[in-house]
Design a protein around this nucleic acid. Structure first.
Lengths: 234, 234
DNA sequence: GGTAGGAGTTGAACGTGTTCAACTCCCTTG
DNA sequence: CAAGGGAGTTGAACACGTTCAACTCCTACC
């Protein structure tokens, strides 16, 4: 239960990841719907029932996809993070890195989003189960901000990474609906909106806008209270 | 095909709406997942196969829900639209009307949204199949704007109803995730953000903000090109 | 009245995700 | 070594959404 290096665990861990491997391979080749649990089990060399011993449902296999995507994205984003200092270009670059990472899974992205969209689903990006992946993602966007030469107004410093992540979720949402075969529409929207985001951050310093911002920040704080987000460590 | 008062049609139309009635009743009572097509068919007094003659799939039954909800919402919003002139209060009132209309279906709202979220699904609010309902909804928000005493800047006049509808979709999204039993969190967010929306419209007149707005409006125009939205009448 | 043909209707059958009672291992304890 | 027991594993069985060949009914035309 708390002994991660026990050799006992590695066997089951290997079975576990064999199932994810098989699942993702088949998802990529044939799409989500056309991949049956029987096929996944066969490909992984286990029985159907055994696959269900490790994963509650077919949807749960997508969580494995999530986690890997998150890691791959962080890797793909590295070069931009280390070389670029202009904020807008950092945002665009990191978004592009995501698009490249996701390309192979494009065709079943819709399905994966569909599952993520159901609030009661553990796959929802806002669910407790997704907390680690979400927090890691927000952390990535914090680095995007902090490594740039744009100065962030004090008021915003705490919440901005999460807000940018939300903006990015919007881009992802757009991508899911994007009918262009090479995601060019998404790339265009990203390239056009990122400078606007940066400008909006600047506008925050105007008194009128700043007043509105105070309201928004306060509202965000209150809303956070409503959701059970496992973040309070008291 | 083009003879709506032919008595021939009314029989099948009656069967059709008997199925929707049965479906919505059961959805409300037992939730979406716990309602089987067999149960719906039995409740409607038809065979399973027959239900599939009228509706491609179980999901399609939700479209019927959509359409009715849209009509009910328009009715429920009437009194606010006819009595209130303050824009923020109009927005809040119309949103409240929606929340009241939807209350009975709250428990399966998540499911219905899940289905709507898949881009390839005809249930997506952006799909051609949903076009009529969507356009009707946008029309409702146009009335919200036009019946108010707030003057809308020229630049925005054409696109604002759709933008407000998008804002409202955001509220709906929040509602779907809202864990409070009486939707109080959603009501609060609505009450707090509506005045901000109104203020933001005002800010549009500032040169700096106006410049950004031009970019956004131009981008919206380009993005519209990408989607096959059946709206061009050439 | 008879008949062709389409619209409407049926329920058995199929494929799928999921469950479960039973089984096999293998480690621990005496 | 024996007994116990828990983790891991199995595939048949179940319930559901969906399909389809066959059927019935009704209308239109001669």
């Amino acid at each position: 239960m708390s002994d991660p290096n026990a050799p006992t665990e590695s066997k089951s861990a290997r079975t576990r990841s064999a199932i994810i491997d098989a699942a993702l391979r088949l998802f990529r080749e044939k799409g989500y719907d056309d991949t049956t649990m029987r096929a996944i089990a066969a490909e992984a060399g286990v029985s159907v029932g055994n696959a269900y011993y490790y994963f509650d449902s077919k949807e749960r296999l997508i969580q494995g996809f999530y986690d890997r995507a998150q890691v791959d994205h962080a890797i793909a984003a590295r070069s931009v993070l280390d070389s670029e200092t202009d904020l807008a270009r950092r945002i665009i670059g990191v978004t592009d890195a995501w698009l490249q990472t996701m390309e192979p899974y494009r065709q079943f992205a819709g399905k994966f989003f569909k599952n993520a969209a159901e609030p009661t689903s553990p796959l929802s990006p806002f669910s407790p189960e997704s907390s680690p992946a979400r927090l890691a993602a927000i952390e990535l966007w914090r680095e995007v901000l902090e490594g740039s030469d744009t100065r962030i107004p004090k008021k915003l410093r705490a919440d901005l990474p999460e807000l940018i992540w939300l903006y990015f979720m919007g881009i992802v949402l757009f991508w899911v609906y994007d009918p262009t075969p090479d995601s060019s529409a998404t790339r265009k929207v990203s390239a056009r909106t990122a400078p606007l985001v940066v400008r909006a951050i600047g506008l925050t310093r105007l008194p009128v806008v700043g007043g509105m911002l105070d309201d928004i920040v306060a509202l965000i704080g209150e809303v956070r209270q409503v959701f059970p987000t496992t973040e309070e460590t008291t």
